[in-house]
Design a protein around this nucleic acid. Structure first.
Lengths: 202, 202
DNA sequence: ATAAATTAACTATCTGGTTAGTTAAATATG
DNA sequence: CATATTTAACTAACCAGATAGTTAATTTAT
């Protein structure tokens, strides 16, 4: 379907060049359609950008809430959230980059971000962390800042991918590297936050 | 001096809109000069962008190397590096945003980044971490990923500032918030990496 | 005076968006 | 069933406004 092809192409080009830097012509070419078709399916360049972001956010929100609503200890749920978040962004190559761009530039896309992620997911995460602290599973950390740290650890690696490629001389999306990174993150979460890091977590 | 005014204006506008999104006319207006003057002092829009980045990177490199070359235990040097890095990015509002944009988009600015920061500073940091591990001050962590984590924790807060403003409803650059964030980061570094987090560090 | 700093006015090119129309399939009609 | 009509998907060609960059002239400082 052409509509889907446009979305996939737009996703890539917006991630590479940003909203302002992306050329609608380039998106059309990569999608293999005429430029006018972008405007047939989407009102404008901005609307297309929003559609791309919204699509991912919706999927992310679903997966995130599923995990956050599950039962289990605060520690276990926290680890499984971080794990899911990491897997999601590593499977959707362009998603974290688009989000990062959105955060930097602001604009209407920031509102989607707030509605579909910040509001429902982040609130629950903060509650989860605070619960963990109350119940003595986590050290006495601040909910908001800890959340910020978790997201940083998970996401920034992907947002820095081009630099990693140039400096490290390897592909950050390589299976092995991804696995290493993920375990480094989970490990740091454990030792940085848990009161008894060595303990098994159920 | 007009040249400096142009650099300051460019820094702000590039940070807000990105290289592609920034309008040379807007930079000139903010600097209070005629647009042609940008081209008198700088070859092109790209050259101006590079000049802005280079300026900050040079200053950052100097400060970073100074700390990294100092003597002291691995733990102490690590903490003081993180502290310095945090202070630097919080004092240069637009710097982390520009870096983030550079990392996302690549281009020639990525090379400056590699030469002035990645190569001299990061290499020393990895060595520092590995030394800390060998001497038993740090847990057995991977140098590269740990470095990545440190940078993420320090920088991502600033790269997410617009979202924080909208979601958290507060100014992330407020003195109090900055202090909170900094101590949250240093705290997480201690507990996440040090073998004896509670110990005093000299 | 003369060189450096600065500008108003200009241009070539690019780019988001439009328009007017085509094709093929679905749907109504007689 | 066959034909007319509508609808959905799609395109080539175009356009007005914007934008990076230039030029030639003017002002300022030494």
């Amino acid at each position: 379907m052409s509509r889907a092809a446009i979305l996939r192409a737009a996703e890539r080009i917006f991630a590479e060049k940003g909203l302002a830097g992306a050329r609608t012509e380039a998106i059309a070419r990569r999608a293999g359609v005429n430029k006018a078709l972008l405007y047939y399916y989407f009102r404008s360049k901005d609307a297309l950008y929003l559609a791309v972001i919204e699509e991912h956010l919706k999927e992310f929100e679903t997966q995130a809430l599923e995990i956050l609503k599950a039962s289990g200890s605060a520690r276990a749920r926290l680890l499984s959230y971080v794990s899911m978040h990491f897997d999601f962004v590593s499977a959707h190559r362009f998603f974290p980059i688009l989000l990062q761009r959105t955060m930097l530039t602001g604009g209407p896309a920031l509102n989607r971000l707030r509605r579909r992620w910040a509001w429902p997911v982040m609130r629950r995460l903060v509650e989860l962390i605070e619960q963990g602290v109350r119940e003595g599973e986590l050290r006495a950390v601040d909910g908001g800042h800890t959340l910020m740290s978790l997201i940083s650890l998970t996401v920034h690696y992907f947002a820095a991918a081009p630099l990693i490629r140039v400096v490290g001389g390897f592909d950050p999306y390589d299976e092995k590297r991804l696995a290493e990174r993920k375990s480094a993150v989970l490990d740091l979460v454990r030792f940085g936050l848990f009161r008894h890091p060595e303990e098994r977590v159920e």
